[in-house]
Design a protein around this nucleic acid. Sequence first.
DNA 1: TGGTACTATAAGTAAAACTTATGTTATCAC
DNA 2: GTGATAACATAAGTTTTACTTATAGTACCA
Lengths: 328, 328
Amino acid sequence: MPADTLPFDLRSLEMFLAVCDAGSMAAAARRLALTQPAVSQAVAELERRIGIALFDRGARPLALTAAGGALRQRASALLSEARQIAPLLREAEHARLPLLRAGLVDSLSRALMAPLAGKLGEMAEQASILSGLTASHAGALLTRQLDLLVGADDLDEIEGLERWPLLTEPYVLLMPAALPVPARPADLAQLAAALPLVRFSARSKTGMEVERHLRRLRLDLPRRLEFDTPYGVTASVAASGGFAITTPLCILEAAVALDGLACRPLPGPAFTRHLTLIARRQELGRLPREIAGFCRTHLAGLAEAFDRLVGHEIAATFQVEGAEVQPA
Amino acid sequence: MPADTLPFDLRSLEMFLAVCDAGSMAAAARRLALTQPAVSQAVAELERRIGIALFDRGARPLALTAAGGALRQRASALLSEARQIAPLLREAEHARLPLLRAGLVDSLSRALMAPLAGKLGEMAEQASILSGLTASHAGALLTRQLDLLVGADDLDEIEGLERWPLLTEPYVLLMPAALPVPARPADLAQLAAALPLVRFSARSKTGMEVERHLRRLRLDLPRRLEFDTPYGVTASVAASGGFAITTPLCILEAAVALDGLACRPLPGPAFTRHLTLIARRQELGRLPREIAGFCRTHLAGLAEAFDRLVGHEIAATFQVEGAEVQPA
DNA sequence: TGGTACTATAAGTAAAACTTATGTTATCAC
DNA sequence: GTGATAACATAAGTTTTACTTATAGTACCA
């Protein structure tokens, strides 16, 4: 018997949830057409295997502990997913690709979500596109909860992936247009003394990159307000009159009015962000390549909006991948 | 033995995946420290219970059938979620953090992110606002990675929380304006036959609620395209000419042009969504109450936009909480 | 203070999961 | 083709698990 065995199976979760819903083990037993000791034993075994008490014995209307409540949430989600599977497999028999799941980094939602949805809808029977942080999508890709990922991280530390670069964009300053443009990195500290710096959370790849870059520049800027979405950062800068280190795509993503704000070049060494499409190697054939091409075509259409947003000087750093690079 | 039993348990899925990964049943057996017949029997039993062949016997490097491939995707997702559960429960027991962090459901980003950031920035030395799904925020709240949560779930199965209702809004149909308005629930099936139904993913509370509602109405609508953000759903409907079951706030959140689309009442019994502010009980004093009041004030400002979007008839269901309800 | 309705434990039984043993089939080297 | 090899399937026996009945213990209510 392997040591990393799961501490429960679906049957025991089913019984646990029945107890939660019914309010007592005896009632749950009736509902499941079992005897009461069966339920009692199953719950006890579940608690023993997880190693945490799930119910508060000694309180008569049986009460959940904190851990019990958490399990209730997750278990019901897990079971409802499990119940969907079998019917879907029957449909999967006569289908193209049965299911295609993609993770799209937040900052490309507005640029790519709808066209990508159309494309995936053509290529698969069922398509699912999730938004969020690249970090969480990366985990999902590896555990096969996702099949494709478009994000700001090329996951080069992970084997067995194929990578299709999409575009490169510069980091920029988003700040009040009236203020003087910082010329040297040190001017950023001065700016931060006058205005609140709005940051990306360190949960996001972008936030981590910015943090690392500032450390390289030996700048220790305050950390007052942070967000994990481009909208949060941009909207907060617009509302509060602060400033942020962000990228053109992140600003476009937010789709908020930028009255009185301007994009300025970030002083100091070049600092860019790369967006990449990633899939597990050799599982989807030429599909990732085709989708990457499709994304590039759509992203190229943004060049004009970029120009308007940041001016020609900065926009030159914006670059959609042209040559179709072979996956590493 | 009840008839609606699941056709598999986690153990059999584990074995099935081991076979997929190892490439043969014998190799999988070695890896699982079992004998070959154990695996063979488990796979056979799994196929019998699901009622579909998963592998292509007779092809020697064992090949997956279409259904087998689909099961592989979903089963590995299911298992990786299952494996996360136990460790999370252990964390749920303790942990404590000083900093003020809030989780805001995606559909309120546009409405509340910036003002909430300003407010929290006043009240705390450092504030962090994360966007995403209520479900993941709920876990973060329990494990004390978040201190506040604004979401579409009141987590009533969890003890030890205080809840501050913010507003109630109706679910509505977002569909082409030119098409006739569905009068009865059954008309939805007809609509779904003509147009693609764009769904919220079951990962989101909104998606789960819609799914449950449809099940109550005994409607089995196709599942072609799904998203976990309001922007995804709205943009896809706008781009593809499909339809969706969504809410006014979700539509406003997306901030996309709705040319040719209209909001229609959802036929059938009343179906509304409740947004609530949640905190762990008695940990932040009167702060949650104050923030809830602040949020309501801001949300009340949306009433006009609601009217324009959905018309008076539907908008009547939109209701910002007035009385400050004592936490349960 | 019993009565009721629940939970826990003990011991036995039915079902399942797994094992060894053996037969069958596809692939490959010759 | 032919036999060797490595895989899968099936049969029969064994261990483990899940469930049952029976009984004792515990919180709650009148």
